[in-house]
Design a protein around this nucleic acid. Sequence first.
DNA 1: GTCTATAGCCAGATAGAC
DNA 2: GTCTATCTGGCTATAGAC
Lengths: 204, 204
Amino acid sequence: MNKIKDLTAEEKILNAAKRVFENKGMSGARMQEIADEAKINKSLLHYYYRSKQLLFEAVFKTAFNKLAPQINTILNSDQSICEKIKNFSHNYTTFMIKHPYLPNFILQELNRNPEFVKELISSKTFPSMKNFQQQIRDAVKEGKIRSIKAEQLFINILALNIFPFIGAPLIKGFINASDKEYLLLLEQRKTEVSDFIINSIKLK
Amino acid sequence: MNKIKDLTAEEKILNAAKRVFENKGMSGARMQEIADEAKINKSLLHYYYRSKQLLFEAVFKTAFNKLAPQINTILNSDQSICEKIKNFSHNYTTFMIKHPYLPNFILQELNRNPEFVKELISSKTFPSMKNFQQQIRDAVKEGKIRSIKAEQLFINILALNIFPFIGAPLIKGFINASDKEYLLLLEQRKTEVSDFIINSIKLK
DNA sequence: GTCTATAGCCAGATAGAC
DNA sequence: GTCTATCTGGCTATAGAC
């Protein structure tokens, strides 16, 4: 069993770079700070990753590839609508409580560089909207849920799950919650969010 | 009546700085780029605003002060819950379609500098959660809406309205929408969002 | 692989003429 | 108020010893 100290230099760099880039973004991050964080010499960063840009891309792609497959289960998996909503909300919130800076980091850099998305998404299993659209249409027709566009429902699911992490400082300010109180609200959202969505779309 | 060209140098700088900072963020922005955008000499930036930091703060506070009062109407205004949800969703989405980079800019910088919030919010009319909490409790007691915590409802309202702008590149990638198609979805959200929320909380 | 030293560049800020 | 020229510091990246 490995201790933390037994990580290779390359791994230490990647972990440190992750922390710094997530906090400061590409342009705000400093190679020296990453080196300090990793407790290694600055020139080793270049030895292993050649340039800041390449190190950044390694970090970004790793981060994005943790997020995208989770979202993709909404679009392409054989769960029922209700299961998708419940499972995604629970799993995503659980995961993000452990990595709260991840959504902000990814969306920040995607907004700076929007054409990046295509490259990232098209390289993976192509997330077609078709299956999900059909699933929603069928459920509407069968009278299981009220009429709603698949795209709008999809946006709503993402919004309710992702925003609480990106908007944390703003929300905390308005509701005047401490970090601890806010964490409790997030914990409750593991079930709160799916209840909210299902209540909105189900026919009674 | 003034033409655009009749703006003072100070105004031209502020407008240009707004555009550049919103796109690049504090650390990514360049004073030279702001000067070019404003079509003035770079040293005038320092003449009017002393430093990049002060120019940034001027831009940021202006932006934040456009956003905060809108949010505050949810917490403190004498509208009914239903009116609040409908009006806020419609007004906010309409406004943000005209300023799509604003939410990302503000949340980005708040995440980098979370203690900034206190300073910004406490200087305005103090947005107490109390009124809104009471309003929700009353509505629940009167059987108008199902049981829900005011904080969670507040987060949901913000999430559904704000996220579509911050998450645009990500969403566009997943649902494979062009800019034009996405704009249409946003237009629909002016009423879609409030329907979604009200459907979730109203008792039938 | 890991270090020190430094090249080379670029950005923010200022001096000073007009 | 507006310009040109320049200082100064900090940052990425590399050269080269070990």
